[in-house]
């Protein structure tokens, strides 16, 4: 498996370099958190909003931008296309589950992005030297764990929507709704703290929070140890949930695919 992955990764890296201009453009399309930052920044001129000062917004949204870049997922467009055009049948002939090829290309993309993002993050730090995070060994470990979980959740949930293309033609539209939910309740439009209490209570347990917001919250220093514990348990639950859902949908989908062809 390791050998297969290194081969897949090598090829994926080659492709990424070939499409570098395209990737840079894709990276630029992730500016929405910065737009929201600009809006909240000027709204907070008159004083903190729900405990968020201008500097808090800068800290929150810069990290949100980074998390969004590093958890970015596009697998549904490929999956949907390959299912509808029948290209998937070629991949099914290979003695390896197609998901690994998609994972490899996403990992290669992340490697490429890191290479660009690290210098940019340093520049951002120079421009806003006052940004502040609660960095301890525990929060840092949790942050990276939550970052990985966020990517897994975004990838697997999108993959599940992609599998729906075996049955319906509007899989991408459904995913769009899911994506909109993430922008709203995943803390992009506003930090979850700024939502009305009734909404926030529910949002805290929905998967959207763990697809973007949670890693940022962990190092924001606003969560109590209880919050961290409960949040981590909910996060693990959702990862497990989507793993199971993926397996179930995939086996059903393959059966459908081989029964009716493409």
């Amino acid at each position: 498996m390791l050998r297969k992955y290194s081969a897949l990764l090598r090829r994926a890296m080659g492709l990424m370099l070939e499409y570098r201009a395209s990737i840079v453009i894709w990276m630029l399309t992730g500016v929405m958190p910065l737009v929201m930052l600009a809006v909240w920044f000027s709204l907070a001129e008159g004083g903190p909003i729900a405990g968020y000062s201008q500097n808090d917004f800068v800290s929150y949204y810069l990290l949100m931008t980074l998390v969004r870049q590093l958890t970015n997922v596009w697998v549904i467009w490929e999956l949907d296309y390959e299912i509808r055009h029948g290209d998937l049948s070629i991949k099914l002939l290979h003695p390896i589950n197609p998901i690994h090829e998609y994972i490899a290309s996403h990992l290669a993309d992340k490697a490429f992005r890191l290479w660009i993002l690290v210098p940019l993050a340093l520049v951002a730090w120079l421009i806003f030297p006052t940004i502040h995070y609660d960095v301890t060994p525990i929060t840092l470990t949790l942050f990276f764990g939550a970052l990985a979980a966020a990517w897994i959740l975004r990838f697997l949930s999108q993959y599940c929507f992609g599998i729906l293309a075996f049955w319906i033609s509007q899989a991408i539209t459904l995913n769009e709704i899911w994506f909109a939910g993430m922008l709203m309740l995943g803390g992009v439009v506003a930090p979850l703290d700024l939502f009305p209490d009734q909404v926030r209570v529910i949002a805290n347990y929905l998967p959207f929070r763990f697809m973007l917001s949670f890693p940022v919250e962990i190092v924001s220093g606003r969560l109590t140890p209880t919050d961290l514990l409960v949040g981590s348990i909910a996060m693990i639950f959702w990862v497990a949930f989507f793993v199971v859902l993926y397996r179930w949908l995939w086996s059903r989908g393959i059966r459908q695919f081989s029964a009716f062809g493409a």
Binding site: A21, S22, I25, W26, L28, T29, G30, V31, M32, V35
Partner: peptide, 14 residues
């Protein structure tokens, strides 16, 4: 290979 450039405009259009 810049088929996504229109997406870029949408991002700013937000």
């Amino acid at each position: 290979k810049i088929d996504n450039i229109t997406e870029l405009f949408y991002a700013f259009y937000e």
